[in-house]
Design a protein around this nucleic acid. Sequence first.
DNA 1: CAGTGAGCGAGCTTCCGCTTGACTT
Length: 768
Amino acid sequence: MAKNLVIVESPAKAKTIAGFLGSEYRVESSYGHVRDLPKKDFGVDIEHGFKPTYEISVDKQKIVKSLKTAAKGSTIWLASDGDREGEAIAWHVCKAIGVTPSDAKRIVFHEITKPAITEAVAKPRSIDMKLVEAQQARRVLDRLVGYELSPVLWRKVRTGLSAGRVQSVAVRLIVEREREIKAHEYSSFFKVAAVFSGKPNFPAELSEKIKSDSSAKDWLTKLKGARFKVGKVEQKPGTRSPSAPFTTSTLQQEAGRRLGYSVRQTMIVAQKLYEGGHITYMRTDSTNLSPIAVEAAKKYIKATYGDKYARERHYQTASRGAQEAHEAIRPTHMDRLKAGMDHGQSKLYELIWKRAVASQMAPALVQKTEVEIDISGAHDVFVATGEVLDFDGYQRVWGGGKEDRILPELKEGQELKLVSASALETYSRPPARYSEPALVRKLEELGIGRPSTYAPTIGTIQDREYVEKKDVEGENKEIKEFTLEKSKLAEKTSQVAVGSDQNKLVPTGLAEIVTDFLVKYFADIVDYDFTAKAEDELDEIADGKLTWERMLDKFYTKFHPLVTKSASASREEVSQAKKLGKDPKTGLPVIARFGRYGPVLQLGKAAKDKDDRETEAPRFAPLPEGTTLDDITLKDALPMFELPRVIGKTKDGEEISADIGRYGPYVKVGKLFVSIKDHDPFKVTEAEAVKLIDAKKKAISEKVIADFGKLQVLNGPYGPYISDGKRNARIPKEKDPKKITEAEAKKLLDEAPARKSRWQGRKKTNSS
DNA sequence: CAGTGAGCGAGCTTCCGCTTGACTT
């Protein structure tokens, strides 16, 4: 048995380190946190100094057991990350495996190299309990917020909902952005552009934007007779510098933009590259590169592109609350241009490699030329710009250098000839909807959430149905374009969609209601600065200037009364019930509100309590197609309560009724439902219904092609198939479904591909 | 994708941060 046990957080790291330390050292991984507050109980004793109860997480029982065995008779070295969570992991590991924390040696290394590790091992310290306490304060705070707020939502809005310090702010950002977009008033202006003759011909734009179509037209008329002369010519050099190497957030942004990856996809692919030993750790907020990496980059750049392309750079980490436990994301070997097992991995690796190498390269040098062109009889000028790349620098690797825009030689006072001109109507743009990476970027900017939680948070707010990732159709607008060519003025109108969007995060009605409720009753919690302020206090705890009990007490004495107060909010208020008017038949009020299952119409009031026998139970109905809670009127709503509607009887005297269900309109006889997609449930006649019902009955009778007891050959909406009740299998085209034997059917079912597991699919449960 | 049509009860749900699991011979 080895005399020393080194415990790190990740198994990939363990493997590497084991190679650097001798046989005296055994290196194992804790796989992150091993203990946590219980999932089911509150786990915090508020009465007694917020004392937390910890238990070994279910998925870590085995790991803890094996660490315990390995620890026997060994010196324990705790080598978790050098941040708040890492310190807490070290402490929790001790507690979990029965080692007195003060007996263990705590080490931290900032890069995984032999010298760095040897140095760390030579200078161990003990666990920093102040830092551990700061982590516990963070953990308890999140539990208090999450487990007191969520149940309020279960009672007021919908069962199973959730709220928390991070997710509720993420949802709020999206809700508020959508409202800004809705409030945006489109205005249009005209961009006037011209092409002048020269070698080569070149474009220029009018310095002023034109507001109305009549003045746009006037302008072109004026240009028709005008003379043009070169005015001020300005030339100045410019530089462009590379960006810092990737952090989790910037990698997600760039992979989203360039490769179209979702945040989750990016992380899965990066994890594989990390496990393969191709890149450094992918969950980081640091832009720092180790001296070894900087050196390797320099060597590679000089050898490949020449000395003048190399430029050593050190980047400051910009994000608030960064903990800098790791390096930036970079290739483990700076001179390895390609890595990865498949196309997806190769593309992401290439991106990481380029960004890291480019970050150590010289800036690109450009020459910018700006030329003003005077118009006779006008105040405004045309402006032509040219740009020539003198030295590509980092763009040699990273790319991104636009093509040169070359202007002909132009001298002040020189006369110019107009080739053509145009005035194109353009609409002002509303604020941009968040894409997944853009939301991550915003959260990071606000210091909310950590690199390891960005992807899961985005998943959670979608799972809870607060947010949908989707395409949004824009508004159709008419645009005018005037052109002047060969002295002929022409006018054209066309349609364009403005404000359309693809793959963006859009809030649901549920998100709006929950956000409005939280903002009204828990303004401080969903405040964009809440986390930043909490972080300041956590730092004070780590510095020994504040105790964690005191911090939590201060927070809770303010927070808990808000929870109590929110109980008085009525469901109707929270669900933003809208009174539409009174039903003329019954005199009962008709309201539209957000119900447990989405938007709903309600006729009559809910009983005050369970024993209230005076009040008749209210009736519910869905909103008619095409209406929303915002625009529904009493007139639209009333017919919905006419359903279900009795429309007649079958030959056997059974009643036929029509209604609208989850999947559209249907007619019903006894227990048989028949979809009536093309008919209006308010108008469908008895004769039409009977016809549809007979057709459905016939289809059902023809459904079973062959019956082998357990196995059946059935006729489905997508053609014949085999089913055993659980699994289904399609039948090959060349086979006659009527002639299939039981053995053949069984074989086909066994060979049927397993249900397609969708790569992007998330589990509805919170297991990931 | 294999075909659906709730709303009661009881008992359940939930947070944020670390990390990667996997049934056997």
